[in-house]
Design a protein around this nucleic acid. Structure first.
Length: 500
RNA sequence: GGCCCGUUCGUCUAUCGGUUAGGACACCUGGUUUUCAACCAGGUAAGAGGGGUUCGACUCCCCUACGGGCUGCCA
């Protein structure tokens, strides 16, 4: 995977549009969009962090494009200067990177393209598909209030300037409004929602360029998506209604409409819109909670999408399977139990070296000390069995505590109880027999079994003090596994410590 | 208020007019075991409600209820 650039400052460059305004129609001369390579994009606003729902939207876009040999682009919708921050952009890039979603080309700054947006607004003016509107916000408010007073069920603002004679134009600031069709209907042919029909009468002439010359979001998305060659717009269904107005811009400019795919939002466990009170909403919080990225991807892919009974799959398999047809239309709820279970499968499937590496990243992300070289070595060996039962990283660290601690081992309350006088005596008789033992499970097993039998105990009774001595606690991995990992000398030393 | 979208086990979902409505998570029971897990086997559990259409509806249509979204010179 290509290392994505991490400095937002370096990344935010305007999209290279070498094509002059006259050549829009020539960008994809003859080929219908179905023949073109897929281009998708993720376009977050840098107002906070990467929301888990945004992460899933990005994932869907990434899977769809990459699974088809297409491109996945990233655009930061930073036109709201008040709310956009470079820190938020950095957080979004970090979140995507952690999820393993790499993007093609440079990150596009929407704000940096404002001149291009304004240019298109003026083109619309020239084409007669937009007009100058001199109405003030007060006039608009008055208009709406009047209509509502008349009992209108909805108040679509009708600008008096729509068909006004240019000779009557005052010398005043104006906004550019799209001249939207007043009658008929706009049909959104959506790959997820199906055929959605919007009555044009319910839509007003939206502003494409504000009176201060700043383009609006509605115009900017369309221009950017077009210029970036986006073929498939996969985004939250909160944009479904917007799609109708945006489609009008495509029509006004004679541009080819992309394939729409409006996916449902993610809800919290209680079915309400996912918010802070449900706990984690930011992707990075999930990283800090210790969910492995591969498990996270798998879970998020299955949340709102399905292909038969497929539940646990690798990213490569997801790339193969993912399609728009499998996306559901109802919002899905986050289920932490299932997330954890999915992560457990991925933990068990993971390559040891890769897992060790990701564990290191997890420790860094939560500000815990990195493993020492010695610990890492032991961990690498222990991973072969630890990963089978651990689900998330904190789980893994906890199960590995026996190799992270060092002598003298301080037993916890239960461990101390297990190391009573009788048990210590048994350990005392066991230790000498280990000095010359061959350090394999096959060789150790008969020794421990014999000692247990000689003490008149079942092996289970011997295991308790062994755990206490080796790990300082009573809940641990198998005693053989632990002894093999920490080695003969260390094992004997710990047993000797405990026996005294 | 208006418009748009949605509604299958507790949760994620399969089904694309005819199925004993399937799988996964969770839960319960049993097994295995060296503790906790993990693992294995089994079980409980669903078409929001009401009308149509049809020989036959979870599936198609309408209404209601509930949830969500949009309705800005925000994105």
């Amino acid at each position: 995977m290509r290392p994505p650039c991490l400095s937002p400052r370096d990344c935010l460059r305007p999209l290279q549009t070498s094509r002059p305004m006259v050549s829009e129609r020539l960008i994809f001369p003859m080929s219908p969009k179905s023949d073109r390579p897929v281009v998708t994009r993720f376009a977050p606003s840098p107002t906070g962090y990467l929301h888990i729902g945004g992460g899933r939207t990005a994932l869907f876009n990434w899977l769809y494009a990459r699974g088809r040999g297409g491109k996945f682009l990233l655009r930061i919708e930073d036109t709201d200067r008040e709310r956009s921050t470079p820190e938020a952009t950095a957080a979004i890039l970090r979140g995507l990177t952690w999820l393993g979603l790499d993007w093609d080309g440079e990150v596009v700054s929407q704000f940096a393209r404002k001149d291009r947006h304004a240019e298109v607004a003026h083109q619309m003016l020239a084409r007669g598909t937009a007009y100058k509107c001199f109405s003030t916000q007060e006039e608009i408010a008055t208009f709406r209030a009047a209509r509502e007073a008349e009992g209108a069920s909805y108040a679509v603002f009708l600008s008096p300037w729509r068909d006004a004679d240019p000779a009557s134009f005052p010398d005043a600031p104006y906004a550019i409004r799209m001249k939207a069709p007043r009658t008929g209907e706009t049909v959104i042919d959506d790959s997820v929602q199906g055929r959605v029909v919007i009555q044009n009468a319910t839509l007003d002439d939206m502003i494409v360029l504000r009176s201060d010359g700043v383009p609006t979001y509605m115009l900017a998305v369309v221009v950017d998506d077009h210029d970036m060659g986006v073929t498939h717009v996969i985004r939250g269904d909160d944009h479904l209604n917007n799609a109708a107005r945006q489609q009008m811009v495509y029509d006004a400019m004679g541009w080819e409409i992309p394939t729409w795919a409006h996916i449902p939002l993610i809800h919290g466990p209680d079915g309400k819109k996912l918010s802070k009170r449900h706990g984690a909403t930011g992707v990075e919080e999930y990283q800090a909670m210790g969910y492995p990225a591969a498990g996270m991807r798998n879970y998020l892919t299955r949340l709102g999408w399905a292909k038969g009974d497929a539940e646990i799959f690798t990213t490569e398999q997801a790339l193969q399977m993912f399609d728009l047809e499998g996306i559901g239309r109802a919002p899905a709820r986050l289920d932490f139990k299932k997330l954890e279970n999915t992560c457990g499968h991925h933990m068990a499937m993971a390559d040891d070296a890769a897992l060790l590496h990701e564990l290191g990243e997890f420790l860094v992300s939560v500000g815990k000390p990195c493993l020492t070289d010695d610990q890492a070595l032991l961990m690498k060996t222990a991973l072969t069995f630890l990963k089978k039962s651990a689900k998330i990283f904190p789980d893994l660290v906890d199960k590995a505590s026996f190799l992270l601690i060092s002598r003298p081992i301080v037993p916890d309350e239960q461990a101390a109880a297990a190391l009573d006088t009788v048990s210590r005596g048994i350990l005392k008789s066991l230790t000498p027999q280990l000095h010359n033992a061959i350090w394999t499970k096959d060789a150790l097993e008969p020794i421990l079994t014999r000692v247990a039998a000689e003490s008149g105990l079942g092996f289970g009774k011997l295991a308790a003090p062994l755990r206490a001595a080796l790990a300082g606690r009573t809940v641990t991995p198998s005693v053989y596994d632990m002894m093999l990992v920490i080695g003969q000398d260390e094992s004997i030393a710990r047993l000797t410590d405990a026996a005294d």
